[in-house]
């Protein structure tokens, strides 16, 4: 074993704990040395701490600088702040990295999809600046800043270069929102000059949506402001088979949190029924972030093999395996190949 990593584990609520246990089983069997530190987050914290995100959890993440997070749910119509949004704000996790890659076992009408979305995660209409400016008019401020736009573009180009990607497009609506999206695009173009080896361009968001469903293979990396990113990342997840296999990472200059983007499915809690793949592929992303490529590749290969055999897969991909049985099958596959 190589270097030991200390990682904050945030199981979340609903099906989160059983998913995270399955994922831990697989990651621990991959040969990587991780010390997991468990912390609370989500609805279950409300009674105990009066908040969805306790200070103790924040302090632990601040110490370890890397976390793997299970699904959480934000209560609708209450005054509680979303734990996810608060995490992004507290740690300034400005880059939401959402790969969308075809998984062979999931039959889709396309031959190739391999897109990495880089969604700006802290600005735009998500700055929480909303007012009822009269009794019949509401407004939300769309906040786009030069440094916020510049750093997400720079992050994306750097990631692309490090991972051998060839092309990055900026997605915008600068033909209409000339100031805000115009600034985002200007910053992207400025950054692009630093990376002459990577092809860059831009595309208007509505056209991008149409092109994605017509010919997704033409796209490599996309850089998007927050709102378009929110929508298009789910669109891309849908193209490759849904949120059940969609990984995600929220990354800042000092911290990275890896998480599935699906909900906590509370109605299935305790039934060990749900597919843990989204958190598992997020864990694979985390391993690569930790420079543990060999372990990441080992898990990925074993997971694809188990999915391909269809003997020990969960109900959503046509099987009857429980969450932990699927995870154990991946572990067995890794050991069989070793």
């Amino acid at each position: 074993m190589g270097k030991q990593h200390v990682v904050t584990m945030l199981p979340g609520e609903g099906t989160g704990p059983e998913i995270c246990e399955a994922v831990r089983l697989v990651i621990d069997a991959s040969g990587v040395d991780i010390k997991w530190e468990y912390e609370d987050i989500g609805l279950d914290c409300l009674e105990k701490y009066g908040t969805l995100l306790p200070d103790k959890t924040i302090q632990n993440i601040a110490k370890n600088k890397v976390a793997l997070k299970g699904p959480t749910t934000t209560p609708i119509g209450t005054g509680h702040k979303s734990a996810n949004v608060t995490l992004r704000k507290v740690f300034d996790l400005y880059a939401n990295v959402r790969p969308a890659k075809l998984i062979p076992v999931l039959k889709r009408p396309w031959d190739k999809i391999d897109i990495i979305n880089f969604r700006e995660n802290t600005e735009d209409c998500y700055a929480a600046i909303e007012h009822m400016v009269s009794d019949e008019v509401a407004q939300c401020l769309k906040v786009i800043t030069w440094p916020g736009s510049y750093r997400i573009a720079d992050f994306a180009f750097k990631w692309a270069k490090a991972n051998g990607r060839k092309k990055i497009f900026c997605v915008h609506k600068a033909n209409i929102m000339k100031m805000t999206d115009g600034l985002f695009l200007d910053a992207f173009r400025e950054v692009a000059k630093k990376y002459p080896d990577i092809e860059s361009g831009d595309i208007i968001v509505d056209n991008c949506c149409m092109q994605l469903v017509r010919n997704p293979a033409q796209f490599d990396c996309l850089v998007l402001p927050n709102l378009y990113g929110d929508i298009l990342t789910d669109l891309c997840a849908g193209l490759v088979g849904g949120l059940g296999f969609a990984p995600g990472a929220n990354v800042g200059d000092g911290c990275a949190i890896f998480e599935a983007v699906h909900g906590s499915a509370p109605k299935y809690a305790g039934m060990k029924k749900v597919n843990p793949s989204a958190v598992l592929v997020s864990g694979i992303m985390m391993l690569r972030w930790l420079n543990e490529e060999a372990a990441a590749a080992r898990i990925e290969k074993a997971m694809f093999a188990v999915l391909d055999e269809r003997k020990h897969v969960t109900y959503d991909v046509g099987g009857t395996a429980k969450t932990d049985e699927y995870a154990q099958a991946i572990v067995d596959k890794m050991h069989a190949k070793a």
Partner: peptide
């Protein structure tokens, strides 16, 4: 006081937080 929508006063502010010159 918030900056880019994130509260910067009172309370904890991450040293990593990007702040611009425009405060609400």
């Amino acid at each position: 006081i918030s900056n880019r929508g994130t509260k910067v006063w009172p309370g904890f502010v991450s040293p990593d937080l990007l702040q611009v010159n425009w405060y609400r």
